[in-house]
Amino acid sequence: MGPSSPDLGGATASGGPAAAARPDAIKAIPVRHWGRWISAAVVTYLLVALVYSFVASPNIDWPTVWEYLFKPLTLIGLSRTIELTFVCMAVGAAGGVMLAVMRLSDNPVLSWIAWGYIWFFRGTPVYVQIILWANIGVLWTKFYAGLPFTGLVFGSTASGPLVGNLFVVAVLALGLNEAAYAAELVRAGIISVDAGQIEAASSLGMSPTLTMRRIVLPQAMRVIIPTMGNETISMLKTTSLLAVVGGGIEMFGRLQNIYAQTFQIMPLLVVACIWYLVVTSILTLGQARLEAYFGKGFGMQETEAAEKRTARRTLRAIVAAEKSHGDQGRT
């Protein structure tokens, strides 16, 4: 029925109680928000001035920015940065799940070891940890295969090739640090799953391990994924701290090495900022997609997916029926 049709007099075909005719929609003059206009104008004015100071500054040599933005040196550095981010996050996430499960374990020794790990790695600055791992060769000069404290040694090798490799140092420093933070996020995710879920799973005869894997972790993911997305974005930026160990194993270290010699400090910092912003923006978009996937069963967009599955099921049934019909025909 169209919007008001007064000539029908409210008598509806459904036979229910007669609905009153709808009165005219309210047309009122909106409140003027003068304060909003003024504050917006002031803030915009200041922002324009700030941006202008960058763009028009003779001290930022924009041609240099454009030159370095797409130089192979920068782009290779960027690809190493992204690679490091994902390797460190993989190590961190795997370690985090393991630590979270240990922390929640009934075994008090495992629980306390996980607690101690998290305590150490969250209690010391990641910058210090990077330098510590870069110098670990001083502590561990050799790696031994054997049983500690028994004098039983099957073989040994110099630690140099491993701990002297800056990529290994980077993954150890950032991956192990991330594991401690991820552990707390995973633990929060696991705890957020309703206790009734575990009871339902155990009353169906599912073992604790199976319950964790099939029922608890998939639901915990819904809570964990958004936070892990943030962690990944944060990790991308944290890799810039690796510049301290030198060697140019990621983008910022490489740019720093250049401006240390050419003194084009501002242009190269702008290059770094642009690329970090580009990648974090892309990661933010990816995170939204992951959230949608792990939010399965919690949103209304499922209706469509369910309809598709029902259609496929019906189709399969029809095909099966046709087939069995055909088979009967032949015999």
Binding site: A200, G297, F298
Partner: peptide, 14 residues
């Protein structure tokens, strides 16, 4: 078999 007051269906499964 057990049936609970609050159903406790697995929300991530159809």
């Amino acid at each position: 078999g057990m049936v609970f007051q609050r159903f406790n269906l697995f929300p991530h499964k159809t």
